[in-house]
Design a protein around this nucleic acid. Structure first.
Length: 412
DNA sequence: TCTGGGGTCCTAGGACCC
DNA sequence: TCTGGGGTCCTAGGACCC
């Protein structure tokens, strides 16, 4: 007997889900080039510079019309002595083997003539807001994925279905370029997972369209690592089982994946390998935690550097408190993070009965956390975190909480 | 010459409750 | 005394992402 099912009536053409992933091309470097066009084509490194390199730049930022600074006046990595890492490197710098997440000291060895710029988040945020505003003017359903990436739901946007989304992607690219001078790459696919992979296909300033039928020829040959969510650890484990490509992953049985990687991860891996992902594009999200952390210029000892450490600790608490207050949140889980000289980290946290955004209270609880952490090794990093956030005006006071609590829970 | 800072989500054990 | 089966919350660590 045929099983009745509810397919949409033929006269209604339900639009095909079209999700775009838009990725700004070399965002930080491109923004810096807007300000320093004379750096075009040169090896430039942007990173957490400190000490003399920053001092030199500070003068330039404040006193001189920036575009008039001769290239020779930019600080070079040569002789760099700080602890920062590279956030972005231009293509010219990458040719020397320099890349993001690399320590600046190492980069200075590889390419001492590279120009060092400090990260300027205020500037990146400004351009970030600008390109996102341009997108939402055209396609309102947009999800933030950090400063330089977004997902956009094309499905119900007028023209969003044309050429699989290419027409709209082009329109958005042009609008962003006309306004900011920045380029981006876009992937359009039936879901976020595939769109994210597609946006990498034709970088920079490219567009890639992926349809369901493209899974086998376009996605399966890719390395598993290209799946957003498979990092170095998972990749290593997959390789251990001889799985290098997404196609090889797709050839595995669901049950085997669940037995090998756990039920949740296994099921997710299976779906991902088959190009399946039904996560919606989320336009709103509430923060879960806010934190501040700092790596010291030299490792500090809990006893010998007590005063310095104490002052830093208080400052971090004040910064987190200020962040919370500025954004209108309160939290009730206060935590600390320590990183030792051997790079091992520990965390400690305490949940308090009432939400807070008060620096003194955060400092008091964080101090209790610190007492529970091992302090015999030297420290390289200290962090303070406030989690279990609630909007300031919705936070339960202790009294409201009692009132809302059911008097008895009669389950039997 | 080691390796930033700001996040999210998941897991796993234990406490505690019904 | 031992034996259950949920459920939620808390804590610690870790993977991963931008």
């Amino acid at each position: 007997m045929p099983v009745p099912h509810s397919a949409p009536p033929d006269n209604v053409t339900s639009p095909i889900r079209r999700i775009a992933h838009l990725d700004m091309d070399a965002f930080y470097a491109s923004v810096e080039l807007l300000r320093y066009p004379q750096l075009k084509g040169l090896p430039v490194v942007i990173g957490g510079g400190r000490r003399h390199a920053d001092d030199a730049l500070l003068v330039q930022h404040s006193d001189t019309p920036l575009h008039k600074i001769p290239v020779a006046d930019f600080p070079l990595l040569e002789g760099y002595t700080g602890r920062g890492v590279i956030t972005t490197a231009t293509y010219a710098a990458r040719q020397f083997g320099v890349g993001s997440a690399m320590g600046l000291m190492k980069a200075a060895k590889l390419c001492p003539q590279a120009i060092l710029l400090p990260v300027d988040f205020a500037q990146y945020r400004h351009y970030s807001q600008r390109f996102k505003a341009i997108i939402t003017d055209i396609a309102p359903v947009m999800e933030n994925r950090g400063v330089d990436e977004v997902y956009i739901d094309f499905t119900h946007v007028p023209g969003g279905q044309r050429q699989g989304g290419r027409t709209l992607a082009r329109l958005i690219q042009k609008a962003i370029f006309d306004d900011t001078g920045l380029t981006c790459s876009v992937g359009v696919a039936p879901n976020k997972l595939l769109a994210k992979m597609a946006s990498e296909f034709h970088k920079p300033n490219g567009i890639a369209i992926v349809h369901e039928s493209d899974l086998e020829p376009m996605i399966w040959p890719l390395a598993c690592r290209k799946i957003n969510g498979i990092g170095p650890k998972a990749d290593e484990k997959l390789k251990l089982h001889g799985i290098e490509t997404i196609g090889q992953l797709a050839a595995k049985e669901l049950q085997w994946l669940m037995d090998t990687f756990g039920p949740r991860t296994g099921a997710w891996l299976f779906a991902a390998a088959h190009g399946q992902d039904d996560r919606p594009v989320e336009t709103e999200s509430e923060p879960v935690s806010m934190s501040r952390e700092t790596t010291f210029e030299r490792d500090l000892h809990a006893v010998r550097d007590k005063a310095e450490l104490g002052a830093l600790f208080t400052r971090l608490c004040e910064q987190v408190a200020a962040d919370l207050q500025r954004k209108g949140y309160v939290g009730k889980t206060i935590g600390i993070k320590l990183r030792y000289d051997d790079f091992k980290s520990v965390t400690r946290d305490i949940t308090i009965p009432q939400h807070t955004a008060d620096a003194t209270e955060i400092r008091r609880i964080a101090g209790q956390c610190l007492k529970r952490a091992p302090l015999h090794k030297r420290l390289r990093l200290l962090g303070v975190r406030v989690g279990a956030l609630a909007p300031e005006d919705q936070a339960d006071s202790a009294i409201q909480k009692v009132a809302k609590m059911p008097r008895t829970r009669e389950l039997f």
